[in-house]
Amino acid sequence: MPEITYREALKRALREEMQRDPTVVIWGEDVVAYAGGGAYGVTAGLAKEFPGRVRDTPIAEEAIIGIGIGAAMGGLRTVCEIMTVNFTLVAWDQIVNHAAKQSHMFNGQIKVPMVIRTPNGHGRTAATHSQNFDAWFASIPSLKVVAPATPYDAKGLLKTAIRDDDPVVFLEHLQLYSTRGEVPDEEYLIPIGEADYKRRGKDVTIVTWGRMTVESLKAARILAEEGIEVEIVDLRTLRPLDLSLALESVRKTNRMIVVEEGWRTGGLGAEIAASVQEVAFNYLDAPIARVAGLEVPMPYAKNLERATLPFAEDVVAAVRAMMQNQY
């Protein structure tokens, strides 16, 4: 199977869906002009291929998303790119009070088939530009939230998200755009709301998503050399949360670590740990542990940024500690 980048996988999904459905439109800041298409090049070239359907917008996230909602209500399928997840804060009212309210509050009279694409990430950009709000998005009823880790999942999930009749927050990641992975040329879709085993193992279940899936896979390779076989459940969808694989896995391994990039307090890991112990308490052989980002506004300095974020070595350390009965 050919290997392509995460970025290219997203673009292919956009292209295929635009070819398939003329009501699909893409709006965002600099999705046309900057560097040939998007701050991270995801939409490069699409404006030329689909005249009038890929449009640059003012820097006004509340309008990008609000107008995206309205247009979706009016019959389009809007894909709104918000340059980084930090800027979604400006549009939080539109996401929470409007996108997520229309279908239920209006008793099914209105649907909002839109996708909000936005990357998590960091890169020496300091506190306002290095955040992760996965848990916030995932806590909003009536939103769908996905966070693919691989090019394969990114393409399949984006295509599904565009076809979905509900608002989907599609969380990408700056550090994933250039990662490569196998993506078939044939069309495929990945359902929203289905987790995926990224690795099978018997010793410890790691539940994770997004960039931390990739870091966990790196950790798994290190641990395998020590004879520890971790099982990695990639949630892929954060809302609605599919814990079936996590539960299945922990019934086998009896140990679970939730690995997330965002802050620990009120993180999605807390929700996952709580839900798993509610359902599978009698299968736990150790407390459910969490690996998460440290709770500080992200510093600029290289060493401090590095210390703030979780990486493979943090996962390795947590797994070792669990195997040595230190939790």
């Binding site: 309008a63 998303i65 609000g66 107008i67 309205g70 247009a71 209500m73 009016g74 389009l76 539109q94």
Partner: peptide, 9 residues
């Protein structure tokens, strides 16, 4: 913004 979106559609 919702109204503008309806008009855009």
């Amino acid at each position: 913004p919702l109204a503008v979106g309806l008009a855009v559609a």
